[in-house]
Design a binder for these strands. Structure first.
Length: 606
DNA sequence: CGGACAAGCTGA
DNA sequence: CAGCTTGTCCGG
């Protein structure tokens, strides 16, 4: 490609009468730059200043470089996305201002392009994620090679033998052996769901002499070698000689970006590994259907897996006398009074202030038999299904009673009730709760987020697990089981002194059966069939369209063949296509109106 | 995104 | 009609 330019520079004559800005003028090296400016997603061409050729600065310029450019009346940052381009004749080029530092490799820019297409968002947002936090103009020295210790266990070696692997790893299994196995293939890229986990894993690896870079801060170190560890954005990290990609807790929703484009680290990892021709291992105690659909499942021996899940005690709230209403059953009292070595954590999800009804007589939960969602009572005392709006008389399907009670409770009053009942101080865990507030305290209440604030617990008590089981999201079952897997980690495997306690009116629910038996297949098999029948992901692809301009966008989208459109509900539409390729193509060719438009591809909470 | 410029609104 | 707000366009 550079040849084109030298042909022009060897033109024998310049017409002296021509305007100095004539197109016939000698053109040097031209690069295409994507400005790092929100609201712009189009590249512009710039000349590399001829003075850079003289002092050798041009040598540092390549695809991916971070540069500064004059842009209209101001100067902005940008990325070189193409080199030695043939600019359109009619534009007058301006010169690059300077090279700010290193940026993503050209391979990474290709992946970023794919991401911006797949999730219908701006390339510049993806490139920002793939770039170092601060300008980097020189790289540190390469780390020494990792000391390859004893042979890792067979299961870890096997996990890396297939290009597309789903490893169903029991909740209390160690992850280090897998990383030790992975570094035999080259530099491993390891994605974990939380910052805390990325820090502790980095420390663990350092301790055993494995060179490791923690993203996003150690971008430069990652470039020169060793294991690379980080949360979802690290899936775009530079890796010297990529050997394998490991995604821990592949089911976790924190692996999806919440800003546009709403890319998922699991899917990006799969694509990156495919392009680099290295194995990708998706690891989870409760693999997502997306993962199971994609790769080859590897399990642990049944007994081993089952024993790794915690002991589960179920409190069937249908069976107790109705004298103690609310969330605190009689059976709970001795449990919250017990003083274990580690804390007891009570979990109650306040999100989605659902009006949950239960029969006053038998305690059965009032739900729609067709859609498995809670029914609500309307003004005429009829039971209303919130999915299809079908009404039915207020009758309990179990005992025929016509009286129902409301099961809601506020969390601060609940904390007081628990404190009184437990006869020990109880602390509510919120995002503001500091470590200092909890010293000496052994009893806590919080939302499911509290599960990530502790390393160990003697008991995790789900005060109202039906809220999880009946949540109106199609992934509710998967999410509910993953909560129990997380709780299993806190309280330890069967045989340790910790346990999970679950208050429910649906003790036979398949999520609970899966947890009690330590066998996620008891859920995943039926869940897969349900999703297939209802044509939900992974058997289809969805996008949620919202924002002020959503209606205009939906109008120009029209009603294409094979596309299902639902809504509007609260100003947002759901577009469902047979697969993500089809969906991406559709969103791409639909004209974007000006104004606020949010396109959430693969929405999690539908 | 943010500056430039145009078109629309207000008050004397 | 100056002085200000709101809208639309454009950047190499």
């Amino acid at each position: 490609m550079p040849g084109k330019m030298s042909d022009q520079s060897q033109l024998p004559f310049q017409d002296a009468n021509h305007d100095s800005e004539s197109k016939e003028e000698t053109i040097g090296r031209v690069v295409r730059v994507l400005p790092d400016v929100g609201g712009i997603d189009r590249p512009f061409d710039y000349l590399v200043p001829s003075s850079w050729l003289a002092d050798g600065r041009d040598k540092n310029l390549q695809v991916g470089s971070r540069v500064r450019i004059p842009f209209g009346p101001r100067r902005v940052a940008g990325w070189v996305v193409e080199d030695y381009v043939d600019p359109p004749k009619e534009v007058k080029l301006r010169e690059l201002t300077k090279i700010s530092g290193m940026g993503p490799s050209s391979e990474m820019i290709q992946i970023a392009r794919w991401v911006s297409y797949r999730w219908a968002g701006k390339l510049s947002s993806v490139l920002k994620t793939a770039s170092p936090l601060r300008n980097i103009d020189r790289l540190p020295a390469s780390p020494p090679d990792a000391v390859i210790g004893a042979k890792p266990p067979i299961w870890a070696i096997e996990a890396l033998e297939k290009p597309k692997r789903v490893l169903r790893m029991p909740p209390n299994e160690e992850i280090l052996p897998l990383i030790k196995a992975a570094i035999r293939t080259g530099d491993a890229l390891v994605i974990v769901p939380s910052i805390e986990m990325s820090k502790s894993l980095t420390d663990d690896l350092k301790r055993i002499g494995i060179p490791v870079s923690l993203m996003p801060h150690q971008w430069a170190e990652a470039t020169v070698g060793g294991v690379v560890v980080g949360t979802r954005s690290a899936v775009f990290a530079p890796v010297r000689k990529l050997g394998a990609i490991l995604i821990f807790d592949e089911h976790n929703e924190t692996l999806q970006e919440e800003r546009m484009p709403t890319w998922h680290a699991r899917e990006v990892a799969i694509e990156r590994a495919r392009r680099a021709e290295v194995p990708c291992v998706l690891i989870s105690p409760t693999p997502s259907l997306e993962a199971l659909q994609w790769g080859e499942l590897q399990k642990f021996p049944k007994n081993h897996e089952s024993e790794s899940w915690a002991e589960v005690q179920i409190i069937d709230r249908r069976e107790e006398n109705p004298s103690r209403p609310g969330l605190l059953s009689d059976a709970l009292v001795p449990l919250i009074r017990a003083k274990g070595e580690n804390p007891t954590i009570c979990i109650l999800n306040r999100k989605g202030r659902s009006r949950l009804l239960a029969c006053s007589h038998c305690g059965e939960l009032v739900k729609c038999e067709d859609h498995q969602v809670p029914l609500i009572q309307d003004k005429d005392e009829m039971l209303l299904c919130t999915v299809d709006g079908v009404r039915q008389p207020s009758l309990c399907i179990r005992c025929g009673s016509t009286r129902f009670k409301n099961l809601r409770a506020g969390i601060s009053r609940l904390r007081e009730e628990i404190e009184a009942l437990a006869r020990q101080s109880t602390v509510e865990i919120t995002s503001e709760t500091k470590a200092a507030d909890v010293t000496g305290c052994k009893l806590f209440i919080g939302t499911e987020a509290a599960l990530h604030r502790f390393k160990k617990a003697s008991q995790v008590i789900f005060l109202d697990f039906d809220q999880e089981l009946l949540a109106r999201r199609f992934r509710a079952n998967e999410q509910a089981l993953s909560l129990l897997a997380q709780a299993s980690r806190l309280v330890g495997p069967k045989g340790s002194d910790g346990k999970i306690v679950i208050q429910t009116r649906q003790p036979d629910h398949e999520v609970l059966q899966a947890a009690v038996n330590g066998d996620p297949e008891l859920l995943s098999e039926s869940e897969k069939e349900r999703r297939r029948i209802l044509n939900l992901p992974p058997f289809s692809a969805q996008a949620e369209i919202s924002g002020a301009s959503a209606e205009i966008f939906m109008n120009s989208l029209g009603k294409p063949e094979g596309i299902q459109i639902m809504g509007p509900r609260d100003g947002s539409w759901l577009v469902q296509a047979p697969n993500s390729e089809y969906l991406a193509e559709l969103l791409h060719k639909t004209e974007r109106p000006s104004g606020r438009l949010r396109i959430q591809v693969d929405p999690q909470n539908i």
